[in-house]
Design a protein around this nucleic acid. Structure first.
Lengths: 205, 205, 205, 205
DNA sequence: AATGAATGAGCCTTCATTCAT
DNA sequence: GATGAATGAAGGCTCATTCAT
């Protein structure tokens, strides 16, 4: 009947695993959402663990929000940094297929599984290296490796909090709401702080 | 025979819940570690959900790393900020009982439960308010509420990444190792970036 | 503190066993209603089975609705029969302590336990023997033993249906309601049918 | 391997539920008797409550002793009444699959469950309506509704006692034994009493 | 290739009972 | 004498997996 059962299973599983995490997600939920039966999972994907791994790979490949090549545009490093922050923040805060992988990151951070290796290599490292290049261009030459890493992590840390810390933020400030304009101000803020931090590095050296 | 069964149950549960999260943790594991039997949990704590809630409360109360009162010391706001960052970072990176709560935070962020409300009120908000006061003293007067929040979250975001992002960092940079000296450099770094960001706010206004 | 714990346990247990039956009733429910603790039951009554047995005995002894001595009054047998029917019906349809034993009868009929022997001897046989005497006085002399029994059971069967069959009656006829006047008409009806049946025995012989 | 697992489960459950009632019956007992395992029940019937409901429905449908259509035969109403009593009594006193439903009735009367609604509609009301027609034909025209009900219940009450009161009867009269001939005399007795009662109604009006 | 049926393991919970005080 | 604490047994249910078709 359905020709693309594996496909539908992958899509459904991406949702469910993102929402519930590996342990809490049940095959029942997934197959119900995919409109097929339990045995199909074991038939197409052997077992739950392997299914999860293939779901991650599938999610990574299908990830449409791959980072633009910030270097390609002939922008000043400052503007590249701004563009990066904007892209990175908006990717995680959209509510859609694009943020499923972020939710899975979250789950993996809480309960790391062997799959995390793949995710880091396929998704995180490429992004990180781009940011690294941008920041490196802004820092003094011959800057220490550690300093470079620190600044990268400062940028990422500031952005990340708005992705993973949402449950806490809404409890700290129930009136919070990140509409489009507030988001733009936030991007500017993180950009401003990060750049100020980087520039301070020049003064110190 | 064995005294203090509830106590031992709480301690064991704190470990297990921190490691595995609420869903994945099983009462079996906990009672085995506590050296008692399953029925003891239901006798002392009614059911798993209530048990978890009481474990969190217990963990909060027992949390020895309550924040010092940074305001009490007659320090300059700058030094208060430095002290805060130092305390906040070190609390989360210690490998001991003190970080169990942070692991549970992590689990709650991935899969929020009703308990998160309590955690925010008991643990997070007090700390956050202290940081808020410190940052407010450094920002220009009549600074927008949003700006204040953004700067607080920048501080926290930078620190937090080193707590929750560890699994990713070690994969990105397998050679990383935060010894005591590196930690001090990290504290200085976050302090420097944050302060530069705050000072930039003065220039803009 | 409480001096009459066993007493309160018996009262509470009478309620609970009547409502739920032996199997479904739990010691928890009983001790909560009695305001004491679980161990008290095992302490005072050894175990659940024995507790149940003692509850029945207690219930029988305390049963205030012991049948009046219908023979004592110098009534015609016909009037004795009428009085019996009236007493028997009203005893079972009252909603109060007096009907608890009837509920327990019900439970015992569905799932007989060794206790049923006691109930029959202490409560049922005395009543039955009185009815037997009344009916015997109305039947032709030298009437067969079986005939006598049949007529007794006809009287009891008609009455009993209104005690045990209530759940079915209210479903068959949702508008049914046995107020005081309807009850009087019912008594008259059963009396009339029973007497007509008995008189028919005379015609046949 | 084994075919017809649901069928075997239903049959086994009918026995066990009849013997023990819903609460006391355990799935273990049922699946052991059916030669399968616990999970099979949850697979085929979701949970115990739904299983019980389906067992009742199954029992009703399989009930081979559905009442004959007493009106169809061109019998006098008196003979219809006699036939009804005979059928109703014998159905309940057989010791076989046919009486399982009666045992379940018993259990439901002691501890009613939502299933009782279905049983009344599917099994009891049709039978009751047939009796109602028969009795109505024997009573004076324009007889009060209440009177009609009373006479129906007198017939049923007399019969029913021999089904549900057996544990008590055998204790009151240990020598009792309802062989085929005694059964015929009992049918005649109830018929005679009921008819005499109905005829008395004519005299009164 | 694909699936309905079946199952063993494990989980949370309840319960009656026992024990130590 | 009386009770809070503790426990073994069992119950219902869920889940991932396997099997026969």
């Amino acid at each position: 009947m359905a020709t693309d059962t594996p496909q539908r299973l992958l899509d459904a599983a991406l949702d469910v695993f993102a929402e519930q995490g590996y342990q809490a997600a049940t095959i029942q939920q997934i197959v119900k959402r995919a409109g097929t039966n339990i045995a199909a999972v074991n038939y197409h994907f052997r077992d739950k663990a392997n299914f999860y791994a293939e779901v991650i790979v599938y999610g990574c490949e299908k990830d449409s929000s791959a980072p633009p090549d910030f270097m390609q545009d002939n922008l000043q490093p400052e503007q590249q940094l701004l563009a990066f922050i904007q892209w990175f923040l908006q990717r995680g805060l959209k509510i859609g297929k694009e943020s499923l992988l972020d939710q899975i990151h979250m789950q993996e951070l809480a309960n790391p599984s062997p799959v995390l290796d793949k995710v880091v290599e396929k998704l995180i490292r490429p992004v990180h290296l781009q940011l690294r290049d941008i920041v490196a261009a802004l820092l003094p030459e011959n800057c220490a490796e550690e300093t470079l890493r620190f600044h990268c992590f400062s940028v990422i840390g500031q952005c990340n909090l708005y992705k993973i810390g949402k449950p806490i933020m809404t409890r700290l400030y129930p009136d919070i709401e990140l509409d489009e304009q507030a988001m733009q101000r936030l991007v500017q803020h993180i950009y401003s702080v990060s750049l100020a931090g980087i520039r301070a590095e020049h003064a110190q050296s």
